[in-house]
Design a protein around this nucleic acid. Structure first.
Lengths: 329, 329
DNA sequence: TACATTTCCGAAAACCTTTTCAGTTTTTCG
DNA sequence: CGAAAAACTGAAAAGGTTTTCGGAAATGTA
């Protein structure tokens, strides 16, 4: 087992004092270029990494951030988390992972733990796009909310732009010449469902079409199948359906096919989420809206950096989403 | 924002020396009960949390572990990671998350970072059950491998027992009276595919049946559909198929149905992984093997605790898996 | 050469906690 | 009561890094 090199090992190898070594390594300008070079080489040779504990003892940054997920990291949390981890890794930050499992007691506990460890900032990853209680007040460290925004508009939040996403989906269908467009989505208790329906209605109005019916249900394949029956019965002439999730869309396609409708010839289907396993594997592969969650996570992380630097950017930021065109339209 | 209390604040408030306060707080037995009480109250009042940085500087445990994933995008890593996080959280451990994205340079970098931060131990979460190079040598901290074992048998590794899982699947089919059992699975370059095929063959032999054909392909739904055609063509009398993954099984079921075979009446199907979205939503819902990944992760974490305590348990430990019976058999 | 600047370097303090060791007080026992 | 043992307390050091400040060396000026 190799002993981990300390700065005094480096200083000794370079033949300078500890103080000089520190200054050389941190880019202070009181060191001759040639001396600095020697120190840097010594550090390289010993693969020296400053001990963050010692550093933070001085009151400096700990180069550590907390990643607090409110619910056991679901399907949506993961990419956000990865994007954030990616950005932090590049910034020499270490990420402390805390999964509160939807338990607010546990969340409080984790927040205290994170503060005791003197994290420089916290990212809160939500489980849905519904607003969640702010934890920012009096915390003493910057907080950025990703996916699920804070209920305090002065906090910094990043959410996917579902309004724009659903507009894009509808516009795509209209461009293809579809005129009778239904919308099948999840529970209206979800902000995501409400916003997607709202965006869809707005886009239909823009196109001079009357808003089609909205079918609210579960976020499941089963509901997609049920809804197919309802939609086709309610309006046999329907030529397109915009689904609030890929799961719903996958169920819808399946049931529509069984009823003899060809996709996309008779009825075009657009999903939401771009959940690869469903969207790419369904038959035909699904046109869908990709919420770019990894980019969202990365962006949130970068803004946490900024906030740590004192350049916070309050507000709920809507991140662009993307239309992924496959064979279902 | 209030200044964070230090132990000397506590000592001062309680009217004792710093040393006494420390001993009282850490349960050392050289403090009179009444003194201890006073200190504890003072700590409570100031909501004092010891600074882990200062603590770790002394060479004591940092109460921090590294969670190194080679590819956490993979859906297998996630539950393992959650289980581990769960166990650590309960043990007052903080988890440093590092995602090397399958890049060994990056992995080296992260390992150095973790060491510089003086983690007490590291869990390495693999992306597949194939053995991966050991990082344990000369590291100076205990390492436990979860899901993907180390290639060094002296390391501590935890993997799902695919051999037993596939035996269970076959036994289940045999119990149901099925006799002509095919096996459709992924690429033979995967240890998982090889072991599952091996276990299946062994179980068939145990039952006095001749091993059916094995179809190697991709881990995809598409391959499942293709394979259905091949299997049904090769042996029209086949009455069961054991698939190496739920994706394959889902594809198989779909294609079999299209060819007029009823599941499970004409042909029973068992999947592998218990990937909820596929297994529970397919029609009919899939009987499948659940590898219990979250338990595996938790167990690995607990054994890391043990290893940190000096009670390592070398070897590759095969963790039990579970048959989940649904409607496809 | 003598002096004033400028440049560079190193000693030491500070950060917070734990632990050791020596000193002080209390208790026990003959 | 006196001595020995036990119980308790506090000063100080250690751990790795950054920063401040004073001093030394090098350079420029008279």
């Amino acid at each position: 087992m190799q002993r981990i090199a300390t700065i005094s090992d480096v200083a000794h190898l370079a033949g300078v004092s500890i103080a000089t070594a520190s200054k050389a390594l941190n880019g202070k300008d009181q060191v001759r270029a040639e001396t600095r070079q020697r120190v840097l080489e010594a550090a390289e040779q010993l693969s020296f990494r400053p001990n963050p504990a010692a550093r933070s003892l001085l009151g400096g940054p700990t180069k550590t951030v907390g990643l607090l997920t409110s619910d056991s990291v679901g399907r949506f949390g993961i990419p956000v988390l990865l994007g954030a981890e990616d950005a932090f890794g590049a910034g020499e930050m270490a990420v402390l992972l805390c999964d509160a499992r939807g338990d607010s007691i546990r969340e409080q506990h984790y927040i205290r733990t994170l503060l005791a460890r003197r994290v420089d900032g916290i990212i809160v990853v939500g489980e849905s796009t519904d607003a969640r209680p702010s934890i920012t007040r009096d915390l003493g460290v910057p907080v950025v909310y990703a996916y699920g925004p804070s209920d305090d508009p002065d906090d910094v939040s990043f959410v996917p732009d579902d309004l724009e996403g659903s507009r894009t989906a509808i516009k795509h269908l209209v461009t293809l010449g579809r005129r009778r467009i239904a919308h099948v989505t999840g529970l209206a208790t979800y902000q995501a469902a409400r916003e997607r329906a709202e965006g869809a209605a707005a886009a239909l109005a823009d196109a001079g079409l009357e808003p089609g019916p909205v079918f609210w249900g579960q976020w499941s394949q089963r509901w997609g199948r049920q809804a197919a029956a309802m939609v086709l019965h309610a309006d046999p002439e329907v030529d397109a359906v915009f689904c609030g999730s890929d799961q719903i869309a996958a169920g819808f396609i399946e049931a529509a096919r069984e009823r003899g409708r060809r996709v996309p010839e008779d009825i075009a289907v657009v999903g939401y989420d771009n959940w690869e396993v469903l969207a790419a594997e369904s038959r035909p592969p699904l046109t869908t809206i990709d919420p770019n969650l990894e980019v969202l996570g990365r962006t949130a992380a970068q803004h946490l950096f900024a906030a740590i630097d004192g350049r916070a950017t309050p507000g709920v930021h809507r991140m662009p989403v993307q239309l992924v065109i496959r064979d279902s339209t």
